[in-house]
């Protein structure tokens, strides 16, 4: 190798190394340091407050609500969007025709600006003007209400059903009701994410060797469920590990829908971590507290990625 290439190399890596340190490494260090302070922008100095910020996170109800809202959101969006993504991929893979059309449609939400679609969903779910509640209300007093009253079921009791309650006293406010808001926001998250997971699973499915199905059939795996349980699911293992990691990291970062629609409310029911960082640090200038949330957030992400890498490495060895 030419002697000159050695020196040239340092010139080539210098900008990247500088930016990695300045934009990625330094902020992590700064966040870690500031999380032990009461720093605010514009103040000349700051005081070290030890673990006070972290202590608040587990003792103040605002922050415990933040942790539980984030956990609920992630634990709802991740399994459902993965199950739907896998289900859609399996169905699309098994139909004879039009599979590509479904694939295209299901991928559309991944491409669209989430903020724009959040505002559209908010409008569609508007309590009085929205088409969802209007459509539900138009079913009141018809056979639809009778059907969803469930009283025709032999084991049904006389209590009014969800639908009858809606007809009698109005359908949910969705984002305005603390019993519904988190689930409604999670619904949008699932709506947006499952197409991405579907595409990854479709790619994973193409790499499952056909002979394995024949071999499984000879061993007596006759039903579709057997084929899935014994061949498809194990072979999709590496895809699943990746899909779980990336969906979890993305759901942790949910922000657009929260900021645009609920602002963390009502009653902090949708006060997720990214929005908490934005509200507490950027808007209220509580940089110490914001940094502490950032550190906890990074901790989650790092643990997840390490677990993923560990699992991937274990699996790669036998292939």
């Amino acid at each position: 190798m030419a002697q000159g290439s050695h020196r040239a190399a340092y010139g080539f890596i210098a900008p990247a190394v500088f930016l990695m340190i300045a934009i990625l490494i330094a902020p992590v260090v700064i966040a870690a340091a500031l999380s032990f302070t009461d720093y605010s922008l514009g103040n000349a100095g700051f005081d070290w407050v030890g673990l006070e910020n972290y202590d608040r996170m587990v003792s103040r109800s605002t922050y415990t609500k933040m942790l539980s809202a984030t956990a609920l959101y992630v634990l709802t969006v991740v399994p459902i969007s993965i199950a739907l993504g896998l289900g859609a991929a399996l169905l699309i893979n098994s139909v004879k025709r039009f599979g590509d059309i479904y694939k295209t449609i299901y991928f559309l939400p991944v491409m669209a600006a989430l903020l724009a679609m959040a505002l559209v969903w908010e409008f569609a779910l508007h309590p009085t003007l929205g088409m969802i509640n209007n459509t539900l209300a138009s079913g009141c007093g018809t056979w639809i209400e009778a059907f969803f009253g469930w009283h025709w079921l032999p084991w049904a009791d006389d209590a009014p059903s969800w639908f009858e309650n809606g007809c009698a006293s109005g359908f949910p406010l969705w984002f305005g009701d603390k019993d519904y808001s988190l689930w409604t926001v999670a619904f949008i998250g699932i709506w947006q994410a499952f197409g991405f997971n579907m595409v990854l699973y479709l790619a994973g499915l193409t790499s499952v060797p056909r002979e394995l199905y024949q071999a499984a059939a000879m061993d007596g795996a006759t039903t579709a469920w057997d084929r899935f349980r014994l061949v498809t699911w194990p072979m999709l293992g590496p895809t699943t590990v990746f899909v779980v990691t990336i969906t979890t990291i993305r759901s942790f970062q949910v922000f657009d829908t929260i900021e645009a629609i609920t602002q963390g409310g009502p009653a902090k029911s949708t006060f997720v971590m990214m929005f908490a960082i934005y509200e507490k640090a950027i808007q209220h200038n509580l940089m110490g507290m914001g940094s502490a949330i950032t550190v906890v957030f990074l901790g989650f992400v790092l643990i997840l990625t390490f677990v993923q890498r560990h699992l991937v490495e274990r699996r790669v060895h036998y292939s």
Partner: peptide, 28 residues
């Protein structure tokens, strides 16, 4: 290119892959 510290720089890249920029938006 072969140069001294190449493995270290690649290690740095692999480490930085772990950091989502949105997560460190506040210190930035």
């Amino acid at each position: 290119l072969k140069f001294w510290g190449r493995d270290f720089v690649f290690g740095l890249v692999m480490f930085c892959l772990l950091i989502p920029v949105h997560a460190i938006a506040l210190p930035i």
